[in-house]
Structure formats: C-alpha cells, structure tokens
Design a protein around this nucleic acid. Structure first.
Length: 554
RNA sequence: GGGCUUGUGGCUUAGCUUGGACAUAGCGCCGGGCUUCUAACCCGGAUGUCGAGGGUUCAAAUCCCUCCAAGCCCGCCA
C-alpha cells in the first residue's frame, strides 16, 4: 500500500518536474512521504526553493490521482500526508492472516548459512550466521520466493582429520550425558595439544587427508562417522534456535561425483591459469595479489576447488545463489565470485557479517575458548523461567516452562539479529540475558497484550475508520510491513525487520496507554478493537519472520 | 606492509547505499505514573565538537581526500 503510493507519487513528480530523481523519501514526523526536489530545481529555475515548493504544491493538489492525500509546502519541503482511506485500507489488509506477504514469484533461490566446521559445538559466533541466515530465509519465503536452505558440510578438512586422529589414538570415551558435538570438541582440543607436543603427528594427519581424497573406504567411513555425530549435535542446537535447513550438502560428494575434476579442467583453460607445481589462478588484474591455488603439487584439490564445484552446481539448479559467511571469508568469497564470472557461471551473492568476540579476545574452538550456543540457551532458559515464575506464579510449571522457552529463544535471536551485520560485536552475558526494552521479549509482550485485549473483548464488529493521533500513528506503522520485507530482501539485511518490529511494539504500547480499548463504547470500541487486531496480526507476522514465537500469553 | 569493515551522549545502538526540516532508540542517571485493557510497560528531563582534520555543496553523520584507533583477511588450511 505504502509502496504503491510511493510509486504513484514518484511517477507524478517526474511528469511535473521532468527530473529523473525526484528525491522522494520518508517524511519523518512531518509527513508520510516528503520530497526535497525544490532544492534541486532552485538552480535550474533560478528561483527560491520556497517559491518552487509552493508552485509545485499548487500543481500537485489539483492532480486527480492524489485525491485523499494532503499536499503541503513547509518552507522548501513538500509533504504528503495520507488520508483516511489509506489508513482504513491498511487496517483492512492487516487484519488478514499472512499480512505482509508479497506476491508469489517463480524465482528459485538457494540460501546457504551456518556451514560451520564439524569439529566442535556451535558457538555464539556461528549462531550469528545461523540467525542472520534463518531470518533472511524467512523473509524470502514471506516475500514469495521459492527457497531452499542448505548447509555445506566441510567433511574433508584438516580439522576433521585431526578429530579422526584423536579418536583413533587418544582415550575418546564419551562422558555420561555428553552431547555429540561437545564430545568431538573435547577430542579435537586434546588432539591439538598432542600435536603441539609432537609435531610428527602432523604427518599422520596429512596421510589421513590423502586417504580421504583418494576415496579410501575405511577412512572415508571414519570421517563421515565423526562428522555425522557432530551434525547430530548441531541439529539439536539449531532446533532450539528455531533454525532449519532443507538439505545438507557434503563437500566430499563433489570429489566423488567428478564435479571438482570437471571444474578444474575448465579452470585450467582460463588465460589466468598458471600450471606450475600447483595449479593456480593469477587474479592480479582484478586486484587480488595472492595466488588462488586450485590444486596442490601432489595433485589433490584444495577447498577452493570443491567450493567452485559446489557453486557451479548451485548456479545450475537455482536462479539466485546466496551465501551467508563470516567476514573472515571476504577475500576468498571475492576470489570465488571473480572466478565464477571468468568461467561464465552464475555469480553468488554473499552476505558477510563481522565477528563476535569475547571480552578476553577472539573465540577459538581449537583452544577451547568459546561460549557455546547450548550454554547460552541453557542459561537464558533458566533466567527466563525465573522471570516467568516471578510474574506469573499462578501458572503451573509446564506452562511456565513453555513460556520461558519461547522468551529465551526470543531474547537470543533478537539480541543477535538487531545489530547490523557489518558491525563486530563483543558477546556480553548481561545484554544477552536482558528481557527489557529493545529485546525480543519486549516485542512478544506487546503481542501478548494485544491478544489479551482481544480475548477479553468477545465478538465485535470490524470498523476501520480511525480518528485519534495514537490510532493513526499505529495504523501508519502497521502499513510499513510489506515495504520492510521488500527492503530486507533487496538489501539482504535482516536487522531492518528487527528495528521495525521494535518500533511497531513502541507505537502499539503508546497507543495502549493513551487510548483505552475495552472501556470505550460503541464505534470507538469497535474501531480500536479492529486496530488492536491489526496490530496483533502485524506483530505476529513480524515476530514469526524473525523466527520468534508469537505467544498469546506471557 | 597491502586490502576489507567499523568509529554516533558514560555504555550499547539506528540513520550512511539514494546529502536536506530539531541525529534513532535502549541501558544507566533525575522526576512522574499500577483500586482502571498484563508496569517484561508508559510519560517528562539531563547528557552529542556524529574518531580528528581538510574538501565538494545553497545544505554533510551521510559524498571525496588525509590521518588516528579497533576488528578481520592476505597458506600447496578449511
């Protein structure tokens, strides 16, 4: 609705002014939309911006398509304020299930996220990837795309070889109640300690890697076995975070099915290819200074080669290929994109996010320096349960547990998704465990309030003609959801939705305190209940797109 | 050394891609508000040389240049 209005206004402004860029944008507190085009026209027309704005307003007010929109000049600014029809149309749309969804599209999108090395549990850095990726996935589905979400399993790396070495040479008994991925991490850390003491072990690790590349059945089986166990652990964690993948794609498959060999053959024919001891690409003409090695001197492939094969496969099966990767992958990501372009393949779009570190420094699985996602979830559920028990002592324990779980999940997901991906962060227990303003639970709370009002109201007649400033402000905030979804997809930045949902909750809470709903009567009661229903539905759709439960009571 | 990213009140953070009307919000601080729809809330107040300096422009947090600081990356690892 807002999108449609903006398109119409842009077109009309272009017609009238003849300008390419009509400088139409948000009007903030002054208007629903505003333009500063008068400044741009001032030079060309040799008139004062204020005069130009007045003249334009005179022309615009007569325009038949702008009926119902107040057009006014405030100094050099031209403001557009939408009328009652816009507000009531918004509410009519927003009370319907699925509000905010965009038109179905035929574009097939593949989104890869998390893809952590299976050598230890997911930590708070990995889940930034999961949560950004999963929120993007939900936004893509809401925007009507056909989507498949993939996890790329790095099952033939050095890390895994070290894990396998550890399981064969060290005491690797699983402790009672120890989670699979935590067990793997313990052995991985121990194996690394042994390697530090005796560098000769590295040779044994290298041999394991060569056996895998050659396809030695027993070694491949060992690798697969440990990786699968680690993934079992990951799946428990991701389920707790409400994160899901449609398919796990195994890196080693791209050796076995010959795709890697095939892409290496094509790379060799590129003018940038340098076959010396290694096969490498010289991408210096594109600003990459280091050699991009594809095949080792012993003939085995490196990660980059398998990754190219994987991406060629994705490009052949999907219209858009999107990867969510940590900032440490920026260089290799750019080299991958560059090479895909040289090969004439579809170029993947890469979403990078900056690192999460601990107050004492960066995290390291190898050194055992990390806060695991499982520990975070356990702590947050504990705190949430205490909180629910304090606020709702009358509920039985299972009910309190259920609420606590949803609240904990909301706190974790929101705390991570609310920050722009390009910002590096330091993990902070106090902030992660906060359930107050600017948190996921705060938005859930607003939703529960709306539900509570609707539950108490009983049946009512829907009425979309709003009056008071608080009512109109809320309706206009509700109107923005479809455009927010559109922006998240266009910019691949899910924190935009997080900000929006918080602002929607703010606006709803403000309305809640200024305009009584159940105590009002007649038409006023009906229209406010309709608005509450629209707000509840919009909060629900926003929360669910953020992967947060829209609980009805908390 | 080179590249990428970031620097916004005491702390955390939006806005920067598309320059424009008093820079967004939270925590903390000060002062108010529950016999009235869930106070995980709301209302009001104090706190800012938007890292520093220069430039472009009628107009710069936003664009350009230089510098400073932090994180990440520069492997026949993945």
């Amino acid at each position: 609705m807002l999108l449609k209005k903006q398109t119409i206004l842009e077109r009309i402004l272009k017609e009238i002014t003849g300008m390419d860029n009509v400088l139409l944008g948000e009007g903030g507190e002054h208007a629903d939309l505003a333009t500063t085009i008068a400044f741009a026209l001032a030079k060309q027309k040799k008139q004062a911006p204020v005069k130009i704005a007045q003249d334009l307003v005179a022309d615009l007010s007569k325009h038949p398509e702008l009926a119902g929109i107040t057009v006014e000049a405030k100094g050099p600014y031209i403001n557009f304020i939408f009328g009652k029809e816009y507000v009531s149309d918004t509410i009519k749309a927003a009370v319907k299930p699925g509000y905010g969804s965009l038109e179905k599209k035929t574009t097939r999108v593949v989104l890869e996220h998390t893809s952590a090395n299976p050598n230890g549990p997911l930590h708070v850095g990995h889940i930034r990837n999961s949560i950004i990726g999963d929120t993007l996935a939900r936004a893509f589905r809401k925007a009507g795309y056909r989507l498949e979400v993939q996890y790329y399993v790095n099952d033939m790396g050095r890390q895994i070889a070290i894990v396998v070495w550890g399981f064969t040479h060290l005491d690797s008994t699983q402790h009672d109640g120890e989670k699979e991925d935590a067990h793997i991490a313990r052995i991985y850390i121990a194996a690394n300690r042994e390697i530090e003491k005796d560098p000769g072990i590295t040779q044994q690790v290298n041999e394991l890697m060569q056996l895998v590349e050659k396809g030695d059945t027993l070694t491949v089986k060992k690798f697969r076995n440990e990786v699968s166990r680690c993934l079992e652990g990951f799946e428990v964690t991701m389920k707790n975070l409400n994160v899901a993948h449609d398919r796990f794609v195994w890196e080693s498959d791209f050796i076995r099915n010959g795709y890697t060999e095939r892409i290496i053959g094509r790379i060799r024919k590129l003018p940038q290819a340098k076959q010396e001891e290694t096969l490498a690409l010289d991408l210096s003409e594109f600003g990459f200074e280091n050699k991009y090695v594809i095949r080792r001197s012993d003939g085995t492939s490196v990660y980059a080669a398998r990754d190219l094969a994987f991406h060629a496969w994705k490009g052949a099966n999907f219209d858009r290929v999107i990867d969510v990767l940590g900032a440490d992958h920026k260089l290799i990501g750019a080299q991958l994109q560059c090479t895909m372009k040289l090969l004439g393949e579809k170029v993947p779009e890469i979403v990078h996010f900056e690192f999460v570190s601990l107050p004492e420094g960066s995290m390291s699985t190898r050194a055992g320096k990390f806060v695991s996602a499982d520990d975070l979830i356990t702590e947050i559920n504990k705190k949430a349960f205490d909180e629910v028990t304090a606020r709702r002592p009358e509920l039985d324990e299972p009910a309190r547990r259920a609420i606590a779980q949803s609240v904990g999940l909301a706190a974790v997901r929101y705390d991570i998704v609310k920050v722009s991906p390009e910002k590096s962060t330091v993990f902070d227990w106090k902030e992660a465990l906060d359930f107050e303003r600017q948190s996921g639970p705060y938005i859930q709370y607003s939703h529960s309030r709306a539900c509570s009002i609707l539950d108490k109201a009983g049946p009512f007649e829907e009425c979309c003609d709003l009056e008071t400033p608080a009512e109109i402000a809320l309706a206009k905030q509700i109107a923005k959801l479809p455009m927010v979804i559109e922006r998240v997809i266009a910019e691949l930045r899910p924190h935009i939705l997080a900000t929006y949902a918080r602002e929607l909750a703010d606006t709803f809470n403000s309305f809640y305190h200024f305009d009584p709903v159940l105590k009002s009567e007649g038409d006023v009661r009906n229209r406010r209940l309709t608005l509450v229903k629209a707000a509840q539905n919009t909060l629900k759709e926003s929360l669910e797109t953020l992967g947060i439960d829209a609980i009805r009571s908390m």
